[in-house]
Every structure is written in C-alpha cells, then in structure tokens.
Design a protein around this nucleic acid. Sequence first.
DNA 1: ATTAAAGCAGACAAAAAAATCCGATTATAA
DNA 2: TTATAATCGGATTTTTTTGTCTGCTTTAAT
Lengths: 153, 153
Amino acid sequence: MITDKRVFYPKILMIFTKSTKYALRALIFIAGRCEENENCSIRDVAGTLDIPFHFLTKILQKLTEAGLLVSTKGTNGGVRLSRSPDAIILNEIILAIDSEYSTHECVLGFPTCDDKNPCALHSIWQEPKESLERIVMKTTLSALLKNKELIKL
Amino acid sequence: MITDKRVFYPKILMIFTKSTKYALRALIFIAGRCEENENCSIRDVAGTLDIPFHFLTKILQKLTEAGLLVSTKGTNGGVRLSRSPDAIILNEIILAIDSEYSTHECVLGFPTCDDKNPCALHSIWQEPKESLERIVMKTTLSALLKNKELIKL
DNA sequence: ATTAAAGCAGACAAAAAAATCCGATTATAA
DNA sequence: TTATAATCGGATTTTTTTGTCTGCTTTAAT
C-alpha cells in the first residue's frame, strides 16, 4: 500500500539554460565583488562559483561581445562591467546567451498559436507569462545586488 | 546608425520539454476527440498533431505506465483516458514525462538556495513561480477542453 | 487460419547542450 | 627580455534530448 502523500512539483521552474544561469551568477558576482575599473579574473569567478572554467570563459566572451562586459588580456587582466549595474537588465543578459529568443512562443509548441488563434493553454498561461516578462524586462543587475549578503558564493 | 527599436523577449517561456509539450497536446487531442471507451490510434494522433510517430509512441507509453492512459493492442486498438479529464491535472502529466522533478529548484541553479538562504533572485522569483505552480497543480485536462473550438489540429 | 492493424521493445542515429582541451595571443612584472 | 598570468579561439568530447528503424506481440476481422 502506498502511503506517501508528498506532493511533487515538477521541474517547470528550470526556465533558464545552464549557460544563462552561469551568466547571471557570474554577473552578480562580478558586479558585487569588483569595483569599477577593477578586473575580475575569470579563473577566480569560476573557482568561487564552482563553474567549469573553460565553459565560463565562453559564456563571458558572449557577454563581452554583447557589450555587457569589457575584457582585458594579460597579467592583472580579466573582465568588468561595461556600465553601471543600474543599466543592465536581465533581458539583455538572457538574450546575450540564448539569442534564439522568440517573442511569443506557444507553451504547447504550436507554431500558429497567438491571441487570435490560441491553443488550449493560451489564456491560462497569460498570468505567469506576463509575470515572468515583467521581471526580466524590469529587473536590473543592481536590484539583485541590493541585499549583498544574499549573494551566494 | 541603428534605428531598430524592437524589444525582444527571451525564450524563457519554453518551460516544458518537447516531450512534455507532445504529451499535453496528445492528451488534449485524445480527451477531445475520443469518446469514452473508444480508442485513439497513436498513428492518428501523431499524424493529426504532426508529432513523430515513434517518438509519440514512447511518450504515450509513459503516460500509460503512469496510469493516465489505457492502451489496447491489436486491430481497433489504441489508447484512451483511464479516467475522466476532470480527474487529471497538469502536474501529473508533466511528472509522468519528466520524472526528475525538483520541488523548489533554484532559478539560478544554486544547490543550497531556499527561503532561509536565498539567492539574489529568490524573492523576486516568487510571484511567477507561485503563479506557475498554481496552474500546474489546479488545472485539469477538462479545463483545457472547455472551449473545444480552441483545440488546434 | 490468415491477414492486417494496432501497441510494444530495444537498438540505433542525429542534434543540441554542456563541458573539456590545447594552443595562440596579449600584457604586466620581475 | 623573459616568465607568467591572463583572455581568446577552435577543435573535440561527453551527455542529454529528440528522433528513427526494425522486428515482435497482440487482437479483430475476414
């Protein structure tokens, strides 16, 4: 007889790819630990955040290409924010890593689904969708730094 | 000079795996088209919904193992719902396909993140997270069928 | 009984995501 | 100027997800 009454929640909240998670964690770390014009070595970031070094290298290169970071080669080199964390929103970060965004992709994967021709989940899905969009469009990197003590190693 | 002012939204809404999307679409179709005790052939479902047949076969087998479908072999065989669509919630479907649920996985991937030891995004993330959880825990298959005309081919 | 229509099962292949490796380049410091 | 610490760039590997192929079993109709 099964007596286990636990309720399991699915992994629906794994919304970001691992690459994007790494990018966000790294940027929060860089913004929090590195003063302006001071470089963060990628090796340090990777070591502290426990992210595979060579993999992080590629991710941060994308952020550099996207103009979010400035990198310097050579001894004492590293990366730093290209501008104030006030001026960096989550959306930019996510797009820099996963460029294949899609404006209103159907949650059930129907290519033709939109407001005029909705799938069965379409209307129900509006609330969480808008909630998520609001957050990624409005949250800045500095908002994440407000409680600095919250930044995990 | 760049004049393109379009705002791009990231693909954060691709929350379900393709397998889960296929499962949901198939169940909606099966629930909507097949009367009680009438079988739906998997080949028909795959053909109508444009899902790779052999792949769908595996997905529906999982749903059968999970007790959501009943399958019948042989001529005129196929699958049908094991119970009323009133009694099937989205959460069950998702779990049947992606069994590696995780109750409160951190949105930034920190293994130790929870309410007591939150990451920088933790509190901001509560709203969409709860919105999503509410939906997958409360929405039934029959709720998706209410407006039958919405079911895409 | 035979045939055809179904689901079942397992191996395999392709594609995408994640991770690794190595060499080249750059710049600072001794 | 040489050694060292850094990023950069490309190739490669591994893992996961998605998709394909082939044959087997079951069942109903003829």
